[in-house]
Design a protein around this nucleic acid. Structure first.
Lengths: 225, 225
DNA sequence: CTGGATCCCTCACGATACTG
DNA sequence: CAGTATCGTGAGGGATCCAG
């Protein structure tokens, strides 16, 4: 069965052949956070039909973007992870996420936030320059979804789940978007009640300096700054 | 008409909602080269059904990625062009094209090369550093598709069609890919007959230094170099 | 329980014809 | 030239089922 194909001898057309099918980019997003089993992927993408997930994983595997690995005994289960070629999409995925976030409206009633999406939001809005030597741990709670950001040595470790030793716990909801775009100042966010803090409230300013979306920055400039 | 929607409050998911539908990315590619009329787009994307092209243009327009402009009288025709928001995809599109090109095989019998694809290939493989002060004009012919590259002041003007005053005319076929990936050296390309030159043959080395694909470079590094 | 495969239905896409 | 109309097909969506 010959796959659907744009029929152009062009890098972009080939890229679209590889990762342009429905759900592929979101599967890749989740695999950037960590290798996952079939069921983990389902949990992060609750609306994907299992046959489509199955098909995408097979396609991405034959294309060399994802690899399937069988865990050692006694578990013997299967995990999917990005290949090196797949990981080379990182800057593109982060940049595309920033681009999309700029026109994202309020969440609809059935829009969800997943832990992996939150981790990627942190990674894509991270500004190495603003971190500036300090070591800080943030726990970010959006609804009941939790992610942790550990900033140290100008680098970021962002992971799903709680971060026990956090210097600041930020509890919020859809207002997270306004915070990261800086349409909402840290002060407003707190006084309006859109954000609840545990820890030193002054650290929220540091947080938005470290994690924010610049409306007018390109791919390159963002990753440089 | 509620559009199909991933249902995740996530920048990447929203980006995929905006430009993830079939053909959208290739329409955008062609509009990066120049504003176009409906029929021009058809010519560059011969396999797109007209109803799909029509639907994509409407969607991209309501999303603010593309704008429809009616030309002044007496012509009165319609052109589509990217909005500023759409143009912000440039680095992403170029990077994605490079990523895809790395695993592109030989062209199949019905794969085509279009002038716009060739222009974007030049833009995505351009290395400002290598241009180094000199002003040079290349005319690139892949099959019967022609594009021109004018390098000056460390910048690139790449356009479709012939470039009358070219310092070097490069005539080739699918071998263009080997040339740009440097799997094929300039010398080999010429002696094997895969490339025919008109002008100073030594300029082909300059060409591949200026235009090539680095197998191991990320988005950021490529645009910096 | 995980890791899918299978079935059925619908709609987006593909091909082509046609119109202002 | 710039699309709209029509219609068939296959990918995607949703639910269920099954093997290890």
């Amino acid at each position: 069965m010959g796959k659907r194909h744009y029929g152009q001898f062009c890098g972009l057309a080939h890229a679209a052949d590889l990762i342009g099918e429905r759900w592929a980019l979101l599967i890749i997003r989740d695999l950037f956070v960590s290798p996952k089993r079939f069921t983990d992927l389902r949990r992060g993408l609750p609306r994907i039909p299992t046959n489509v997930l199955s098909a995408r994983l097979k396609e991405l595997e034959t294309e060399g973007v994802v690899e399937r690995r069988v865990l050692p005994r006694p578990d013997g289960s299967v995990v999917y992870q990005l290949t090196e070629y797949g990981r080379d999409l990182e800057d593109i995925v982060l940049a595309l996420g920033r681009w999309g976030a700029r026109t994202m409206g309020e969440p609809g009633p059935d829009d969800i936030v997943t832990p992996d999406a939150l981790v990627m939001a942190l990674r894509s809005t991270f500004h190495a320059g603003a971190a500036d030597g300090a070591e800080l741990r943030y726990e970010l709670r959006v609804g009941d979804v939790v992610a942790g950001a550990h900033v140290h040595d100008g680098k970021l470790d962002a992971t799903t789940g709680e971060l026990p030793e956090a210097d600041l716990v930020i509890e919020t909801g859809p207002a997270i978007k306004g915070l990261l775009t800086r349409e909402l100042t840290a002060a407003e966010a707190v006084t309006s009640g859109a954000v609840r803090l545990t820890g030193d409230p002054a650290l929220l300013d540091t947080f938005v300096q470290t994690f924010h979306l610049d409306r007018d920055l390109s791919v390159t400039e963002q990753s440089r700054s």
